[in-house]
């Protein structure tokens, strides 16, 4: 929840007005953590410690952390194949995340899921998803549970621009709207569904415009501006908690890395990537906090050092963890029967 609703000076960014300095410093730390985590994952992949593939969210940190600011551990999120950032933002343990990537028994999914299925149910993260749009109806189901059981929880449903052309997206938004469910659809528009740009794939200019078709508010924001993201999502969360139904937020952002490890970047230019790197969400957040006296260069250097160490420790934990036993390969297909 926002710590304050002081509307004193409109020239002061929303996040500075709404959240206490400790929360903002923690948010910046999480953004650094995601960046360093992804770099650590990429490095581990290159060293052959991780097999399969992975989808890095470097450049999208403001969207993940900003959208989770108003959530508690009781609130749910559903995530995507590019979900490491969401997982960290919702409070996951980095060691268990790396252990999962390394296929270890100590991982979040005991090595059965890997990067594309990472989840942290205790913190409310119902899981990444290997199917584009697969988590959207599931998020609506979680919101239905919250409404029916009266828990007061909301669900933030993350998905990418690619998912906005899946049938599941349209069916789910329609149902969330007719049943006025407490769900916030957060589209992370990073401009490309794999190699296909939104201009080539999507009939509307702004994905937020899709909201009109389902009678819900739709807002397009600069997804690399932490404060803009929190301002939009916090309002949608408040609306959902008030029983006023769902909202659609489009965070316009950019992934610095390729779609996955097989990407040769033939659909975009180096100049385009460089331009977006100039709009680095972390540098902008750090600058904002410095400008408002919440931290300084020394504080940021300490944060970076702390994060560096946290990632190193997480990787060491994962490396040292045991692998699953081969005889357990088919465990957890079904829930064991509880003795009556």
């Amino acid at each position: 929840m926002p710590d304050s609703t002081v509307a004193a000076d409109r020239n002061v960014p929303y996040a500075i007005r709404a959240y206490a300095p400790e929360r903002l410093i923690d948010a910046l730390r999480k953004m650094y953590l995601i960046r360093r985590f992804e770099e650590g994952a990429e490095d581990s992949y290159t060293r052959g410690l991780i097999h399969g593939t992975m989808h890095l969210s470097i450049g999208q940190e403001a969207s993940a952390v900003g959208a989770c600011m108003a959530l508690t551990d009781d609130d749910k999120i559903t995530s995507t194949h590019r979900g490491h950032g969401h997982c960290v933002a919702k409070g996951a343990d980095l060691g268990k995340m790396f252990a999962e990537f390394f296929g270890k028994e100590t991982g979040y999914c005991r090595g059965r899921g890997g990067s594309m299925h990472i989840a942290d149910v205790e913190k409310g993260n119902l899981g990444a998803n290997g199917i584009v749009g697969g988590g959207i109806p599931i998020a609506v189901g979680a919101a239905l549970s919250a409404k029916r059981l009266g828990t007061g929880a909301v669900t933030v449903c993350f998905f990418g621009d690619g998912a906005n052309n899946e049938g599941a997206f349209h069916e789910a938004l329609n149902m969330a709207s007719i049943w006025k469910l407490p769900v916030i659809f957060v589209c992370e528009n990073n401009r490309y569904g794999m190699s296909t740009s939104t201009e080539r794939s999507t009939a509307v200019k702004s994905i937020a415009d899709r909201a009109a078709a389902y009678s819900m508010p739709g807002e397009r924001v600069d997804g690399n501006d932490f404060s803009a993201v929190t301002e939009a999502v916090d309002a949608a969360v408040a609306r959902a908690r008030n029983g006023e139904g769902p909202s659609l937020i489009e965070n316009v952002t950019y992934r610095w890395r390729g779609h996955s490890k097989s990407d040769r970047n033939r659909y975009r230019t180096k100049e385009e990537i460089a331009q977006w790197q100039e709009r680095d969400p972390i540098a902008r957040m750090a600058a904002m906090l410095k400008e408002h006296g919440i931290t300084d260069d020394e504080g940021i250097a300490a944060l970076e050092k702390d994060v560096e160490q946290a990632v190193e420790e997480a990787i060491a934990f994962a490396k040292d963890s045991p692998v699953p036993r081969i005889e357990d390969a088919t465990r957890d297909v079904h829930t064991p029967k509880v003795a009556a």
Binding site: G134, P137, I138, A142, A172, M175
Partner: peptide, 22 residues
């Protein structure tokens, strides 16, 4: 439900994951 088999089934899955018995 609306005539939305994919979405409807998914809502049921999400609800089952979070405490309901659809």
């Amino acid at each position: 439900t609306p005539i939305s088999e994919l979405g409807g089934a998914g809502v049921a899955v999400g609800a089952a994951l979070t405490g309901l018995r659809p």
